[in-house]
């Protein structure tokens, strides 16, 4: 309830609704709030909200090296980068199978190099790429997040064990 005009505090004749105790508490809460905002910004710098920064990306190293985004922001472009080992895949091609959940969470914008073929597999989409016998050969999937929350991407390169990568999409 609002105070009646005659209930408003007076200081040396000045009718002003100040409250020293409330003000002290308010300053304390404000400084905590500013501290939290500073932490928020630092977390952003560290990459906990996606973009750049040491925490933003993870690397799945065995059996295939895949650099993936740990934290992603909605509609912001990110990249899954597969370094293809020279012994992956069969003669002439290398396949990458990606689970269905990945396509529920991300929209694929660009694949470099272009796959030779795409086909439906068991709960996955399989891309076939022409083989290049170079140690640093890589395949890049540039995607945009389309669904908020935690998601798991499973990439299976050739006959290697599936690589599971967890990402979190911020709104």
């Amino acid at each position: 309830m609002k105070p009646a005009p005659d209930e408003i505090r007076e200081t040396d004749g000045l009718q002003v609704d100040e409250d020293a105790l409330f003000q002290k508490r308010s300053w304390r809460v404000q400084s905590v709030g500013r501290g939290m905002i500073a932490l928020f910004v630092l977390a952003g710098l560290a990459g906990f909200f996606g973009g750049a920064g040491p925490a933003a990306h993870g690397t799945h190293s065995r059996p295939v090296q895949i650099r993936y985004p740990r934290f992603v922001r909605m509609h912001a472009p990110v990249q899954f980068l597969i370094t293809v080992p020279p012994d992956a895949g069969g003669a002439g091609t290398v396949s990458v199978a990606i689970n269905k959940e990945f396509f529920d969470s991300f929209e694929v914008e660009q694949i470099v190099p272009q796959p030779r073929a795409e086909r439906l597999g068991q709960g996955a989409i399989i891309y076939e790429f022409d083989r290049v016998d170079r140690a640093d050969a890589s395949i890049s999937f540039r995607v945009k997040a389309a669904k908020r929350g935690a998601t798991t991407a499973t990439f299976t390169v050739g006959s290697a064990e599936p690589a599971k990568m967890k990402s979190f999409v911020f709104p």
Partner: peptide
């Protein structure tokens, strides 16, 4: 805010005397 002084104080603060006499 119109109904609750507490909510008004929390969201907008209160007036504060900074110079007296």
């Amino acid at each position: 805010k119109r109904r609750s002084t507490w909510f008004e104080s929390v969201s907008e603060g209160r007036p504060l005397i900074i110079v007296q006499n």
